[in-house]
Simulated scan of single mutants.
Amino acid sequence: MKKFAFLGMLTMGMVVLFASCAKVPQAAIDGAQAAVDSAKIAEAAVYVPEQLTALEDSMKSALAEVETQKSKFFANYDKAASTLTWVSANAGQVAQNAVTRKAQLKEEIVAVIAEVTASLAENKELVAKAPKGKEGKAALEAINSELSVVEATIAECQTAYDNGQYVGTIDKIKAAKDKAASIKEELTAAIDKTKKK
Rank of each mutant, 00 (worst) to 15 (best):
K2D: 15
A5Y: 15
L7E: 12
L7Y: 09
M12N: 04
G13R: 05
G13V: 11
V15C: 10
V15H: 10
V15R: 00
L17V: 03
L17C: 09
F18I: 02
C21E: 10
K23E: 13
K23F: 01
V24P: 01
V24L: 04
P25T: 06
A27N: 15
Q33V: 06
V36N: 05
V36R: 02
V36I: 01
I41G: 07
I41C: 00
A42R: 00
A44N: 02
E50P: 02
L52Y: 14
T53F: 09
D57V: 10
S58I: 05
A62Y: 08
T68M: 15
Q69V: 03
K70D: 15
S71T: 04
K72C: 04
K72N: 09
N76I: 00
Y77M: 03
A80L: 03
S82E: 14
L84M: 07
V87D: 06
A89S: 12
N90T: 06
Q93G: 13
A95K: 01
A95H: 05
Q96S: 10
N97P: 00
N97V: 00
V99Y: 07
A103W: 06
Q104F: 09
K106L: 11
K106T: 11
I109Q: 03
V110T: 11
A111D: 13
A111E: 10
V112I: 13
I113D: 13
T117F: 05
L120D: 08
A121C: 00
A121Q: 15
E122A: 13
N123I: 01
K124I: 03
L126E: 04
V127P: 02
A128I: 06
K134Y: 14
K137S: 07
K137C: 00
E141P: 00
E141F: 08
N144V: 02
S148G: 11
V149A: 06
E151P: 01
E156K: 11
Q158N: 15
A160Y: 09
A160H: 08
Y161S: 04
D162G: 06
D162F: 12
N163C: 07
Q165A: 14
Q165T: 15
Y166E: 08
Y166S: 04
Y166D: 04
T169I: 03
I170E: 15
I170S: 12
A176Q: 00
A176L: 01
K177W: 01
D178E: 13
D178T: 09
S182Q: 11
S182E: 14
S182A: 12
I183N: 07
I183Y: 08
A189H: 09
A189L: 10
K193C: 07
K193L: 13
T194F: 14
K195D: 12
K195W: 08
K197E: 15
